[in-house]
Structure formats: C-alpha cells, structure tokens
Design a protein around this nucleic acid. Structure first.
Lengths: 115, 115
DNA sequence: TTATCGATATGCGAAATATGCATAACGGTC
DNA sequence: GACCGTTATGCATATTTCGCATATCGATAA
C-alpha cells in the first residue's frame, strides 16, 4: 500500500447552500485580475456562458453583492469585486492553505515513511 | 456577513486518480456492515447498479483488492471487505475527523464570534 | 442429479446536468 | 447617432448520471 496521497478541499456555505468553493474562488480571482467576466473566462479557458452562470448561481445565495457590474459604455463594460468579496477571497485563501497543511501533517502521522 | 459556515472534505488519491472519498467510504462501510453489495445499496437508498459501478471504478485504481466477492451459492452470494480495505477505512475515518476539527478551529479564528 | 433462490454482473435507454453557440441589450466614446 | 466590447440570456446539443431489466453463478435442498 503505497503512493497514496491525501487531498483536501474546503468551501463556505450559507444556510446549507454552497457559497464559495475552489472553482468559484478561481473564477472570482480571475475577474478581479482581468476586470471583466469575459476576460476572466478567456483566461480560465471556459466559456463566458459558464462563468456567468456560476456567478449568477453564487449571487443567489450570497448575503451581499459579489460584483459591481457595468454594462455598455467605454470598453463595453466591466466587472469588479466588491470589498466584501475581496475580503471573502482573502479568508478563503488563508483557510485553504492552513487546512491543506493540516491534512498533510495528519496524513504523515497515519501513513509514515512512504517510499 | 453572517451565517457563513466552513465545510471540508478529504479524499485519497493514488497516482493522481481518486481512490476513496466520502461517498465511497460510506458505501464500503455499508458493505462491511450488511455483508453484501445488494443489502448495502438498499440501506443507503441507492440502486444496486450505482453501488456496483462505484465499487468497480474504485477497484480499477486500488493497489489491492477491495472486496472478497462470492457469486451464487448459499444466500446467492456475499461480499466482504479485505483486511487492507478495513485498514484504509479506519485511516480515512480518523483523518476526516482530525481535519474537520482543524477546519472548524481555523475558521473560528478568521470569522470570530459568529453566533 | 436437478430445481431453486438470492446475490453478483452488465447492457442500454432514460433522465438529469453541463456546456456553449447565437443573439439581444446596453451605454460611453468618437 | 454609429460603433464597439461587454453583460445578459434563450435554447439546442453534448455529457454524465441513474436505474430498470436481464443474464449468470453456485451452494443447498429435494
């Protein structure tokens, strides 16, 4: 019994509904970086439709607006994260890191001396 | 921003392929308890087809046999876990518990006094 | 020796999801 | 007022999941 690795993931829920997981974290990060949903989708290699649907679904359950969107105008429009969303991403990033480290630590205790 | 909870999950991989996660952990536990795939599926409220497919998929990647199966004969047949599978389940159970606790702990540090 | 019975094993169509193409709407800028 | 690139969305297609139906198996009992 070797070559076994542990993986872990975390996500936030609100009233039992999924709010933010790894995939959507990446999407929001990409939006923050790119300044628009469209550019973010291109960067991630997914369709705009898919990105939009995921954001739509998220905002159904989020207790605050995720994005500030602007349609039309200079450049066609843009989207950026609200301050609360930025804070949420920051917390997610930190917790994911901590818990992933904890997983590796506990795993090494249970499966010692692999190869 | 309240009512937010953290959730976490772990799974084992072998050579990058999923080996054991929560759903399959429950399935194997049910098989161990019930003594057959069929009875386990009934207990879990899923179809035998689904249970069998999941086990089939698992055994594709597992480095050791998961089940000892017997077809036909007294009672029609039976299935039980190998000793290695029992050990794997035990480790999974322990690690899941530890990491879940760690998630709650770190979460409380980042999101204090949410009631 | 043969019929029985309940579990394993599996093909295949149906149902549920996910995906993405095509198109409308929008509104600063020139 | 025409243009441009983005947001927004309907809808058809592709992919995955699900489960019904059926074949196979073999110890036991008759």
């Amino acid at each position: 019994m070797s070559e076994i690795r542990i993986r872990s993931k975390i996500w936030f829920e609100i009233e039992g509904q999924p709010l933010l997981g790894e995939g959507r974290f990446r999407l929001l990060s990409a939006v923050e970086c790119a300044g628009s949903i469209n550019a973010a989708a291109k960067n991630l290699g997914i369709s705009y439709r898919k990105a939009w649907s995921q954001l739509e679904d998220m905002e159904q359950h989020a207790p605050f607006p995720l994005l500030e969107r602007r349609v039309g105008g200079k450049g066609g429009g843009e989207s950026q994260l609200t301050a609360e969303t930025q804070e949420l991403l920051k917390n997610f990033r930190l917790l994911r890191e901590q818990i992933n480290s904890a997983a590796d630590y506990y795993f090494a205790e249970v499966f010692p001396m692999e190869e």
